[in-house]
Design a protein around this nucleic acid. Structure first.
Lengths: 356, 356
DNA sequence: GAGGTTTGCTTAATCGTTTAACCCGATGCC
DNA sequence: GGCATCGGGTTAAACGATTAAGCAAACCTC
């Protein structure tokens, strides 16, 4: 039903000029008299002219689209990242093509290739934990942890962990349970490592990997003297919070609970969850910016040798974005009893601090 | 670094034939001798030939991409939908371009136009509550509620509500709080409507819209005799659950709580959350299928008049996908006390049943 | 063996944009 | 006044795939 959309040719015909002139007028590149250029721009505007992206892509080899590969779209952290990436990309005039790797390495590779074939100008990857992203002939930005080789930008999980530790310490806590899911995840390792690094030698620390100890009895830990629970994800923090609550413990009076990422529900629970949030906007912005830089400048001061392995590509862009503590109701002063009279296990510290 | 990717021309040159022949051989369309065709296919395979999507798009007008517009990427339901859409689209060889409308109508329209400009062959829209999606010259599939005009496919929220009501009724509950966020959302209206329709005239029903009564005191309601809380979203169910729990009520012994959508945390809380799940895969599959049908068959038995307004386009595709009850620990038998001796407010039924 | 049909491929146009190369008239310079 | 320069355009060649139309040889048919 719609009339054919305006093209360079159709506009050119109206003015009796060639399509090249119209192209130049709109892009401001060639030499066109100012008067004519102005009239052409006005007319194009009025017509609602929009260049055909496929045609442009064909000619220039740039599709104006970047890919976003995520380990698992169902991961509740994803929406924030996706939203931030989409916004940042849109600001640069780019579209965002999504791909889900379903947490499988094979699918991750396949997804990358599909995106490349679709002509993505660059790809942002949040790798599945422990995965190394293969090298491609497309600019890549990796969001993982500062420690990962090839990482482009990410939250400073380690510093975030340390900051959360400081928060709990400041509230008087001296016995901690640090709860993660999987040791394989470098993000989780960093968070736990940061927490541990932020706690003094004298603190009691139990580290629990849920993957290995899924049946952990949190109320028992609390009864055993643990007063602060820090989980690497709000999801686990929520589990701990509700489990303790159901066992009759008052949060935060009898125990404090904190998580990471400020997931959607963190503010909705009662008591609301204290959490370390990543600045998704800044991270996404940096990832997109890094991509843009690599797309525009082909070789970023080409690494002399071994393009494959290196942690090269060190753009001046920031690499570790600080995290922000969002102190809510689930953390509070350590119970007085524990403060004054430490329990039987004064130094069960399972592992010593591991700062490099 | 990478050698130029293979094109039809480069393959044609290898065989000393024209690019048209190669195209025909690969697509199986024109007339090519079987022997040559087989050799060409083999060679293309070996070379990892992939057609240039932009070029194809330019020629055919089909980009092989569909757009997905969501009201708010930060909405926790989004991941499931996005994941399902992505999978369904990938199965059909389509890519998915995302766009966030930030809940604003203006942004929603702008996002749609950006997608159209990008050459999306079709667009799936989950409209912001209460929004009517404007007509475009691009196939559209709308996921909202069966009641919305123009809706393509969605969960049967009303029947889901009724089924949840039946579940609670079966557990012996007779006094309910139905909790929604906003009356403007047709999804929420349907869910609440379904719940109400599934409850008998004799039941006590309190309907609460959180937007209007954000400070609702749920423990007070429970003390007042309400034994079952059904919220239109797991997010609110979680809020209710934790609030009651903190107030010292044992869930589900003293009160049952249920939600909708089976969000990521529903299984993680203690007690785990009973919820009505939508079958995102089926919904997304149907939406994608509807899009494909409209893309391939230009006019679906063209509606004689008023292409704009109608609830036309009635493809044979299913429109209301049944929801599934996921009974977990947060719902249980109504407390005996309430069962035998109803509380002081036996008939505070705020509104009567409203089945059409 | 002449006419018609297949078969198997080629030619060439087309999608809409970008961009290098060229062209012509008007100036500017010494 | 001869020659380079510049401003304001035009031409034409891409980009890579698709597809209608064309064309020569081979095959069939009676």
């Amino acid at each position: 039903m719609q009339a054919a959309p305006p093209t360079l040719q159709s506009i050119a015909a109206e003015f009796g000029v060639s399509s090249a002139t119209v192209s130049n007028a709109l892009s401001g590149k060639g030499r066109v008299s100012e008067g004519l250029a102005a009239r052409i721009r006005a007319r194009a505007e009025a017509l609602g002219y929009a260049p055909s992206l496929p045609a442009r892509a064909l000619r220039t080899g740039r599709s104006g689209v970047i890919g976003l590969v995520l380990p698992d779209l169902a991961n509740p952290l994803f929406p924030k990242i996706a939203q931030a990436v989409e916004a940042a990309a849109a600001r640069e005039g780019y579209g965002v093509l999504i791909a889900d790797s379903h947490g499988e390495v094979g699918a991750q590779t396949a997804a990358l290739q599909r995106l490349v074939q679709r002509g993505a100008d660059g790809i942002i990857v949040v790798p599945r934990r422990g995965t190394r992203v293969l090298e491609l002939d497309v600019p890549l930005a990796v969001i993982d942890t500062p420690a990962t080789p090839g990482n482009t930008v990410s939250a400073d999980h380690r510093a975030g962990g340390a900051a959360l530790a400081a928060h709990l310490l400041g509230l008087g806590h001296r016995a901690f349970a640090l709860v993660g899911e999987s040791r394989e995840s470098s993000v989780q390792r960093d968070r736990i490592g940061g927490l541990r690094a932020g706690l003094p030698q004298t603190a009691r620390i139990e580290t629990i990997w849920l993957e290995e100890a899924p049946e952990t009895d949190f109320p028992a830990l609390a009864r055993d003297g643990i007063t602060a629970f820090a989980a690497t994800s709000d999801l686990h923090a929520l589990r701990i919070l509700t489990t303790l609550q159901r066992a009759g413990l008052a949060i935060p009076r009898e125990a404090s609970v904190a998580g990471f990422d400020d997931l959607a529900f963190a503010a909705a629970v009662t008591p609301s969850l204290t959490t370390m949030a990543q600045d998704s906007d800044r991270i996404a912005g940096a990832a997109v910016a890094a991509l843009m830089a690599r797309i525009d400048g082909p070789e970023p001061a080409a690494p002399p040798a071994g393009t494959t392995g290196g942690s090269a590509g060190g753009t001046a862009a920031e690499t570790a974005v600080p995290m922000t503590l969002i102190a809510r109701e689930s953390t509070g002063p350590a119970p007085a009893s524990t403060r004054s009279e430490p329990r039987p296990h004064p130094a069960t510290r399972s592992q010593r601090e591991t700062t490099p």
